[in-house]
Design a binder for these strands. Structure first.
Length: 380
DNA sequence: TCTGGGGTCCTAGGACCC
DNA sequence: TCTGGGGTCCTAGGACCC
């Protein structure tokens, strides 16, 4: 779990899972499920390092490696099976390399199948340290009685809606009339039917060929609920600086700024604002966020704050017309350089100069995380 | 002793324009 | 003498993922 006071279970050991401990539980729930539970604070540096090493190993086997999350990758092995004789021989070789190089830290489970949807299913069928190979002709029998919620992309809501239509299994989903699915679920409906049949169109998107990020954001649950405007603004400046720094690092400019607020009752909403021109300037992001805040009448204290930059484009949007803008850009560039070299708060804004005693709990790793590029959120 | 944080995609409704 | 229709942009919210 995270280091902050307000945190959740990131993942649980198989022993703890046997007691019903689940990802996302708070400490109290987890302890109730398993009184003897031992909490361990995550070490994200360790996990990202291991992730990078494993992706490196995978890339020795195939250039077509998609880093899906910190602990999952898709590999298209279509072109490299021959060298190993069979898919399972290749998988064994991958597992051997990982065992040799990271065996003291972790093992891996591998699923081999005709597409990403079924491969994901296969990799979840046997854990830990599993290997499941599904040939195309085996897929229909597997899916026939499989509950729809076990498919990647069908969550609790879709499961409930499908149940209302009398659809519980993938087999039923695959036979259900497309017209009704289309009417009920829109464009997703057509894909749902195909998924029920085990068909999936998305291919492996190798590292380096991903689309540019569409948004860059940071949010934080405050250590203590805040209703004081200056306190809220200070948090917003901190978040704006994180967003701006990450956007500038990758030469991304955004034209929309969104402010997200969560109340103590967990009601969460966001408001966004379109800027006259794309930016990645901390102060422009901050003033937009504050502008939205000032237009709000807060009903209660605030539990969580978030700042997101979106409508992103790559590269400077226009020539800097004014000397002020050029100076500002050089200032930000210099600050970013110092912070990269000497650590993330070497140089900061005067408003943040009083450092919070409980500031900067170690972040939790997200699935959008990547070993390189803008989604490599700095975890210190 | 209450419930994290990073994303993507889709939809629906309203403003505005021709 | 009664109010079309298509397109774009913008915003908010929800579902999903790890």
């Amino acid at each position: 779990m995270g280091s902050a006071k307000r945190t959740v279970v990131t993942t649980a050991s198989y022993e703890a899972r046997a007691f019903g401990v689940r990802t996302g539980m708070n400490k109290v729930e987890a302890k109730r499920a398993c009184p003897g539970l031992i909490f361990v604070t995550g070490d994200n540096r360790k996990y990202t390092d291991a992730s990078v090493r494993i992706i490196g190993i995978l890339r020795d086997f195939s250039p077509m490696v998609e880093a899906y999350s910190i602990d999952e990758a898709f590999v298209d092995i279509t072109g490299c099976i021959c060298a190993y004789g069979s898919p399972s021989a290749l998988a064994m070789a991958v597992k051997k390399r990982i065992r040799e190089e990271l065996g003291s830290l972790l093992t891996c489970s591998i699923g081999i199948a005709p597409n990403k949807l079924i491969a994901k299913l296969a990799s979840d069928m046997k854990k830990p340290d599993g290997l499941v190979v599904l040939a195309p002709e085996e897929v229909p029998a597997l899916l026939e009685d499989l509950p729809v919620n076990e498919l990647w992309g069908i969550g609790p809501r879709l499961t409930a809606h499908l149940a209302a239509l009398g659809v519980a299994t993938c087999g039923e989903l695959g036979r259900f009339p497309a017209s009704i699915l289309r009417e009920r679920f829109g464009i997703i409906g057509e894909r749902l039917k195909l998924m029920g049949q085990g068909e999936y169109e998305g291919g492996v998107v190798p590292i380096g060929q991903e689309e540019e990020a569409k948004s860059v954001g940071h949010s934080m649950t405050l250590p203590v609920d805040a209703s004081d405007k200056p306190v809220i603004r200070r948090h917003l400046l901190k978040l704006s600086e994180k967003v701006g720094a990450r956007a500038r690092e990758h030469d991304l400019y955004g034209r929309k700024v969104a402010l997200t607020i969560r109340y103590p009752d967990f009601y969460t909403f966001s408001k966004q604002k379109t800027l006259p021109a794309p930016t990645n300037d901390t102060r422009a992001i901050y003033s937009a966020a504050v502008g939205i805040l000032e237009g709000l009448r807060l009903k209660t204290a605030v539990r969580l704050l978030g700042v997101t930059l979106s409508d992103i484009s790559k590269g400077s949007p226009q020539m800097q017309l004014f000397e002020d803008d050029r100076r500002r850009e050089r200032l930000l560039g210099a600050m970013d350089g110092l912070n990269r070299t000497f650590g993330s708060s070497t140089v900061t804004w005067a408003a943040l100069f009083e450092k919070d005693p409980w500031d900067d709990p170690t972040g939790v790793i997200s699935p959008a995380w990547r070993p390189e590029g803008v989604k490599r959120v700095d975890v210190r």
